[in-house]
Amino acid sequence: MENIIEIKDVTFRYQSEEETSTSVNVLEHINLNIKKGEFVAVLGHNGSGKSTLAKLCNAILTPTSGVVKSYGYDTADEDKLFDIRRKIGMVFQNPDNQLVATVVEEDVAFGLENIGVPTDKMRVRVDEALKAVDMYEYRGHAPHKLSGGQKQRVAIAGIIAMKPECIVLDEPTAMLDPRGREEVINTVRMLNRDFGITIVLITHYMEEAAQADRIIVIDGGQVLLDGKPEDVFSKVTLLKSVGLDVPQVTELMFILHEQGLDTDTHIISEDMAAEALLKLLK
């Protein structure tokens, strides 16, 4: 599979007003590739540099040293900003900061208006996007009256109306209740599965990360782990030592294993856990 985002030896540090020795590297010599069609989850404690990494992908930030290439374009090349952002959309944590219009469908149309899509085509794309996130019946509603999960899905619709090839989501479920979280994650999975959109999901919820194809763990500005969810989560002690956690089912298997039972610590979902426990207890 082709790489759509290539991060080569990237170091990033925020420039403070008085450039002093106190400014530290948020990311240090990172090398990563994201492949077309992947669903990647990024984990890391607060301040580990994972949001910075996300913002480097679509040129909201550019590296202090090293190169980020998104769809072959160097993100430091200002002439290519428009092209990069057409390909890579971004969804943020707080839905209230992302909705701009007073009617749902106008909000979804906002990006399309900016890129000059003709009205008839715009109508079609807005409707398609709202149907994709299952918010079509709310198209005439006021965004501020929706639930958190619904608002976040409208924000996602606004992005997919632009027909991006990749969406980067920075903790899109942090402010949502359990149902809202489920709605958003199901939508994200569907976009990946049915529309082939590449997903980069930053989250603090281990159960959400367990649903990805690949997990990247960032710690101290570097890549600590990079692999399949079952392999990454089997490193229970390491993850806990860097302030992270594992899904409850993985932790259970780990504790049982420590207590001398023959349990597989590569278990990351309810289905796998129920099956393994039935075998153990029957």
């Binding site: 209740d177 359990p178 149902r179 809202g180 159960e207 899904p247 409850q248 089912v249 259970l252 309810e270 856990a273 129920a274 426990l277 039935l278 207890l281």
Partner: peptide
Amino acid sequence: MGLAVPQITRVMNRL
């Protein structure tokens, strides 16, 4: 009602 129970409780309920 749109809430959930902890993952561990869901697994135990399946057992």
